[in-house]
Amino acid sequence: MTLLAINQFDDILMESAIGIVVVFTALTLLVLAFILVGKLSRKSISLKRKQKEIQTEVVTAPEKILSGNEIAAISMALHLFMNDVHDEESNVITIKRIERRYSPWNSKIYGLTNLIR
């Protein structure tokens, strides 16, 4: 009887050990997978950045120095654009025509006395 109990406890011990190992295996695999995914993601981000840098280098090539007036004009234009200033209105006033729909409640014919002759 005791022997049986010990054997069963051994089984429980074994099952627990397996359980702990499996939990660690599952989560370690997740760790590895996400270290990999993280690396790939960082690589793709740095690749995109590099491509952007190359593109922006091409665009920002001109070395012409702008005058103060030009900078002020561009700044003003940007300021107006960004703040969406409505300094000019169309000055057109529209009057919408209201359509009256037919309804027996306001029909003239029902407001008169209809005498049958």
């Binding site: 406890f9 429980i12 627990s16 359980g19 702990i20 989560l27 760790v31 996400f34 993280g38």
Partner: peptide
């Protein structure tokens, strides 16, 4: 996701489950 190695701490804490399993038996 930003620090995947911390997942192992979540695995370690499950020791409580298996030790209690043995204790309850």
């Amino acid at each position: 996701i930003s620090n995947p190695k911390l997942m192992l701490l979540g695995a370690a804490a499950q020791m409580g489950i298996f030790l209690t399993f043995m204790g309850a038996y």
